[in-house]
Design a protein around this nucleic acid. Sequence first.
DNA 1: AAAATAGTGTCTGTCAGACATTATTTC
DNA 2: GAAATAATGTCTGACAGACACTATTTT
Lengths: 308, 308
Amino acid sequence: MLSALALVLNYSEPSRHQARWESGTFFSQDSQNEIKSTRRSIVNSDIKVPIAINRYKIPYELIMTRTNQTHQPQFALTVDLAIFTVNYGKLCVLLICRGEDPFSNYWALPGGFVLPEEDVEDAARRELTEETGLDASEMHLEQLGTYGNPKRDPRMRVVSVAHVALVANLDRPVAGGDVSQAKFWPVDSLALGRGDKAERIPLAFDHDTIVTDAIERVRSKLEYTTLATAFVNEPFSLADIRGVYEAVWGKAPDVANFRRKVLSTKGFVLPAGKAGVPGNRGGRPAALYLRGSATHLHPPILRSEINT
Amino acid sequence: MLSALALVLNYSEPSRHQARWESGTFFSQDSQNEIKSTRRSIVNSDIKVPIAINRYKIPYELIMTRTNQTHQPQFALTVDLAIFTVNYGKLCVLLICRGEDPFSNYWALPGGFVLPEEDVEDAARRELTEETGLDASEMHLEQLGTYGNPKRDPRMRVVSVAHVALVANLDRPVAGGDVSQAKFWPVDSLALGRGDKAERIPLAFDHDTIVTDAIERVRSKLEYTTLATAFVNEPFSLADIRGVYEAVWGKAPDVANFRRKVLSTKGFVLPAGKAGVPGNRGGRPAALYLRGSATHLHPPILRSEINT
DNA sequence: AAAATAGTGTCTGTCAGACATTATTTC
DNA sequence: GAAATAATGTCTGACAGACACTATTTT
């Protein structure tokens, strides 16, 4: 049923939503009198499908004819970012401590509003630049999904397009400072899912769901893409990116097999010589590599079924 | 940088967006004077990150304090559906012929508005029921992604959450009728991508992009899930679901290997006896199966690299 | 019997899993 | 030399690709 028709039906029958409709949102009573909706049976090959036609027509026209009148915003559109990095062998996500209600003092994903003339992806990249202070044009950023439950924000209807970003370990250590506002939290210290609330950090809104989905996205991405290299600074050793797999999957691939796979995949990594590393505490120095141009792995590196 | 801050900065510097800001959307000049924004340096372990704090605070408060005043709708939020089926060995997607501008007489994906109190997924499932006339609660429906380019609809800002649905061949053939309004189009007859516009059907808005993404989603889903069974009615033969792979991938998996894979995956299909089929035109009758409870394939059935 | 479709057997090459062994460095 | 880390060698089993062959039905 198309939305305009649904609206009429809702309006003509008593329901818990009626008060909300009457209190004035998109369509006034007058507008609804203008609504005409028809259903047609359509046929494709041998198949009959009842459809609602002109689904775009009525809402759009009403919007366009009423732009000079009073309307409340229907939705707020935001982007939320799950910015991942690997720190000290752990997969971490950047969280911000909220300073006000709701969820005051809860940790939340960074995010912000999509500007009226801004593409959603541009908004996400803008936020990424703001949160990391780095040039986000080179970073991996992808859309995760849209979270639009009407109750996800108690104040108003907020629909959020969640994104996943991967950043290499930031390389400018600075001693001291205020740690309370934002932090890369290891994901295993967060209260995600059902039974593990004890001792773990709860998140604001539905951000536990988003983070859970984002982690699974990252885990599966490592299977069939070369994105592990996005977590490390260049140049890197094979042990570095194997460490990424260990941090993200919780289990490291076999050393020899991993090396075989990475080096036999054209364009996964580019040799960059060998060099003594300052912090070497003993051990043969590793060969170093740069990121290659390949993006996908054929066939993938699969997590073992047991671990899944 | 948080959106509110960006808004202030945009406002204070001459830019091509300035006129638009001034013409009044969410935040009036007065509102902007209320905006206070600070930047802090935060430290995580050894890592210093400049961040913008209180990103939610200002926009939300302004919205909440101004709900009695005049605002224009910022965004329209819709769902679009790419409803796929397999007809006569071809992957098809349901399209609606538009009756009005813009894109009058162009074919477009079915879709509609998300209602003010409705979850995005509920909206998609509602549309799916409307478009197919079937009980959508059993069908496979998943979110594809959100398309929010400001120019995707020439009339106003419309952000659309695209979904992918898979339906079995509808089983009530009806002769004759009006074919002009909606139709399952074979995807190879649509103008998708760059150079193949000639002789193919162009789509409205950015629906060519959405359909392209949706097709790729379906193709990859067949690799690692049991969703091929969602395209066929029960009971089905192994040849039936192999035909789905052929239609979606353009190339059929080897018969013997495919059988081996499907039958060795617990819960992919459930034996349902063997029966003579009415339309049998010669040939040994196939064993029949029902959908199993498994959803994922470990390891996946990979498309050959060449075909990718 | 011929045609058509369903289903089986089996060989081979590739590759992941596993793990033992060698190489090169710091202390 | 001991410890630590990097890198290599190699055996094995699982399985995908390929394709020849058998089985059961309609006409």
